[in-house]
Design a protein around this nucleic acid. Structure first.
Lengths: 244, 244
DNA sequence: CGTTATGTTGAGTTTATTCAATAACCGTGG
DNA sequence: CCACGGTTATTGAATAAACTCAACATAACG
């Protein structure tokens, strides 16, 4: 029996009891594989499901009337997807797979049940969901108040950070796995300008690139360019009551 | 005995039982008045409290190293503030009062207790908090993928919408209550450019302005300029179980 | 092996910023 | 009530940042 990646994610921050772990594991019931490029949920689709990303990389985005796209968030294993639709009849955003992926569908009824059986898990979920919000406000701040160079740097740093959380063999070199078009849609830039910024970061000696792989050469400067603040170290859920 | 504004806010979406309403009302215990301009919580402050905004307008923002500011969100009566710090040792953002205001501090322990006593309220909270997230992704999209004119229009529409939710006497005229500097910090523009965009919207006949009051003249065009999508109509919490 | 998607680079244009000067407004104390 | 300093708003001119268009190179893929 494999351990649940969502349980692992929560367990990284909370000491789970055996029954709690079992309850979370039970959520990872309806597994569903996704091909690269597959759309799991389209904006305005009605749904009553949340999803837990078990394997692979996904993204959520919205499309505007004029055809442009804003990528809101990249998702990695352990992430809870589709929370944004929780209070709505229909999803406000599209979820699609950027690599082969595996998700588990969780019905809202299961969430209701979880809240009854394990109140502190419901609270933990609410709290951990704030980390997702935090990523959004970080990006919002980057879009509103920093240069193209800085935004691209921030994206690189962010993605490396998230990949490391999943796979700790990654250090200074990683596979970005995004086209420059996608980097642009995440950072609010055109693909052309993303290209120039990447080149600039390379020329400045902050990063190196070879066939899709990015290497962080000057970490300090890159972090500074990115305006990086590591919230990860500040996570604290010790105020949660003891588990059942 | 006045009814709680937070209970009212939740009650707008969920049919609350008497005990539930009482439980929410109990949260509005420690009332605290704030002067205009007062900082309730500074970024990096340690805190174990959430806050419910009972009266007035507040904002949350972050300051960057270079001194620039990104306003993340404006808050109106009924809003739950400081959720972003829920999983953290310290708050990632600053909360300050834009008008005279009144907040109620809610300790995390009260939240723990609420989850035990009223599991469905905890779930409702989690769901309603997604509406806050939605506002952030809307703004993120505006910053990433739309023009200055559009962003300013969006801010006007958004604020009017939120003011109407609190005070239904407001129709096409309202008091913005923001300096152009603040509009800039929210929309990622300079104050100077905000001024030009406001003027442009005025010249185009979409709005009118006189001493701090904004009047929506051509609602249709303004909405279109703002890329407005009304999520309010899509809120649905009927999947919640019956209350205790 | 062609076809399509992606990446790269230059030149010219648009958008928004910066700097600077002036005007209107606001609260405070005389 | 008015004078005053500080904040906010307005406008113009010059600058900088990012975008568009276009051409070409390279990689990915059936």
């Amino acid at each position: 029996v494999r351990s649940g990646c969502f349980a692992d994610f929560v367990g990284r921050h909370v000491d789970l009891t055996t029954t709690e772990r079992a309850a979370l594991l039970r959520l990872e019931d309806r597994v569903r594989p996704l091909r690269r490029g597959a759309v799991l949920l389209r904006a305005n689709d009605r749904t009553t499901d949340l999803f837990m990303l078990r394997r692979g990389v996904m993204m959520s985005y919205v499309l505007l009337d004029d055809g442009s796209r804003q990528i809101l968030r990249f998702h990695f294993a352990g992430d809870l997807l589709g929370m944004s639709a929780l209070a709505l009849r229909a999803s406000p955003e599209t979820l699609s797979a950027m690599t082969e992926a595996e998700v588990c569908a969780v019905d809202r009824m299961q969430l209701n049940q979880l809240a009854v059986d394990h109140p502190r898990l419901a609270t933990a979920l609410m709290a951990l969901d704030q980390l997702d919000r935090l990523a959004l406000t970080d990006r919002l701040t980057a879009l509103g108040r920093s240069s193209a160079r800085s935004r691209v740097a921030a994206l690189l740093v962010d993605i490396r950070q998230r990949m490391r959380a999943v796979d700790d063999t990654i250090t200074d070199r990683f596979t970005l796995g995004l086209t420059q078009e996608e980097v642009g849609d995440a950072t609010g830039l055109t693909a052309v300008h993303v290209n120039r910024m990447l080149r600039q970061l390379e020329d400045e000696g902050l990063i190196a690139r070879e066939n899709g792989q990015v290497t962080v050469v000057d970490e300090t400067s890159l972090m500074r360019a990115a305006n990086f603040v590591d919230h990860g170290r500040n996570v604290d859920l010790n105020w949660l009551p003891a588990g059942r």
